[in-house]
Amino acid sequence: MGDILNLAAGNLLSPIILSFALGLAAALARSDLSVPEAAAKALSLYLLFAIGFKGGAGVAAHGLDGTLLLALVAGLVLSAGLPFVAYALLRAMTRLGPVDAGAVAGHYGSISIVTFVAATSVLAGQGIPAEGFMVAVAAIMEAPAILAALWLVMRRGGQTEMESGIWREILLNGSIVLLLGAFAIGWITGPGGLAEIESFIVAPFKGVLCLFLLDMGLVAGRNLRDSRGVITPGLLAFGVLMPPIGALFGLAAGLALGLSLGGVVLMMTLAASASYIAVPAAMRVALPQANPSIYLTLSLGITFPFNLTLGIPLYLAAARLVTGG
C-alpha cells in the first residue's frame, strides 16, 4: 500500500501532471491563458509521431512474434466489448436515455492516445520497458467501439445517420494515419533510424508533453466550467468507476497474452481510457441527437484527469501486484 501511495504521490508531483493541473486551474479561474489551435495541433502531431516512431523502432530492435497479432485481436475485442459494459453501467447508474448512454459508451470502448502517451512516460520514468507494438494496439482500438455504440443505439430503436464517408473518416483520421505511419517508419528504419532523429523525438518529448498537457488542462477546465448542471452525481460516479473496470478487462487480456509488466500496464491504460477526438467527431455525425456536453465532459473533464492523476499509478500498482514485477 505504501508503494502505491509513493507512486501516486510521485506521479502527482511530476512535471507533466503539474502542467495539466496548471492548465486546469487557470481555466477554472477564468485566466486568459490559452494555447492557439494551431500550436495544440502541432504539439499533438509531434507526440503522435514520436510515440509511433519509438514503438516501431522498439519492434524492430526486439523482433516480432505471434503476440502482436493476438494483442491486436485482444484490442479489437476490448474496444468492441467495453461499450456494452459501459452502457449497462450507465443505464443502471444514471438517467441517461439509450441514445446518450450509447454515445457515452462508445467513448469508453475507444481510447485516449494522450493517456497512453502519459502512461508510457510514467513507465519510462520507472525504467519499465513495454512492447513497442502496443502503439498498433492503441490505433486498432479507436474504431470498433463506435460500431458497437451505434449498434446499441439502433437496437433500442434510436436513429443513426450512417453513410459510407463516415468510415473513411474514422479509419483514416489523421491521428491513426500518423501513429501507424510513424510506427511503420520506425519499424522500417529500426534503431539506426531512431538514432538519427533521437535528439528530436526522445530528448524533448517530456517537455512537449508538459506543454500539451497544459493545453489539455485548459480544455478540460473550460469544459468543466461550461457544463455545470450537465454532470449528475451518477455520471460523475460512472466517470471514475468505469476506468478501473475497463482496466480490469485490460489486465485480464494482458495476462492472457503474456505481456510484460509494461505491456500489461499499457493494455490496462488503453482499456481504461476514453476517447475525446475520434469518437466525439463520429458521434456528431452519426448520432446528432446525443448531447455532446455529456460525452465530452465525461471523457475529457472527468475520466481523463482521473486516469492521468490516479488511474495510471493504480494500474501500475495492480499490474505489479499480479505479475510480481
Binding site: V35, K41, M216, R222, P280, R284, P292, S293
Partner: peptide, 13 residues
C-alpha cells in the same frame, strides 16, 4: 447546445 471554442482543440469535434 452549450459553449464552444477553437482554442486548444486537438480534434474537430
Amino acid at each position: 447546445s452549450g459553449t464552444w471554442s477553437r482554442e486548444g482543440q486537438v480534434g474537430r469535434a
